[in-house]
């Protein structure tokens, strides 16, 4: 448990073997929906500034996260999920 905390809050794993199942799924969703390369999906990468998402893409991403992780992300919190790392952190905390 401690190892997991160290790995994911606040740092981000750099190799697939170190990634949590959640982080892997988040990354796969982003690659699929935004049509980007895996190497671009870094923790700091912003959906809109770095990964080419427009406002509709970000809505779709949030919906996919909700579906995949069976959570409901309120709009005011969705607004704060702007990067890959923020998405993973939020879902690590809230996923059921």
């Amino acid at each position: 448990m401690l190892a997991k905390m160290v790995l994911f809050v606040p740092s981000f794993p750099q190799t697939p073997t170190e990634m949590s199942e959640i982080a892997e799924k988040v990354k796969a969703i982003i690659i699929d929906k935004l049509g980007v390369e895996a190497s671009e999906v870094t923790p700091e990468a912003s959906f809109t500034n770095d990964l080419g998402a427009d406002s509709l893409d970000t809505v779709e991403l949030i919906m996919e996260f909700e579906k995949e992780f069976n959570v409901s992300i309120p709009d005011d919190q969705a607004e704060n999920i702007a990067t890959v790392g923020q998405a993973i952190s939020y879902l690590e905390e809230h996923a059921k």
């Binding site: 509709l56 809505v59 779709e60 919906m63 909700e66 579906k67």
Partner: peptide
């Protein structure tokens, strides 16, 4: 409702 944001456009 889980309509995709790209549904209408």
């Amino acid at each position: 409702p889980r309509y995709n944001p790209f549904f209408i456009p």
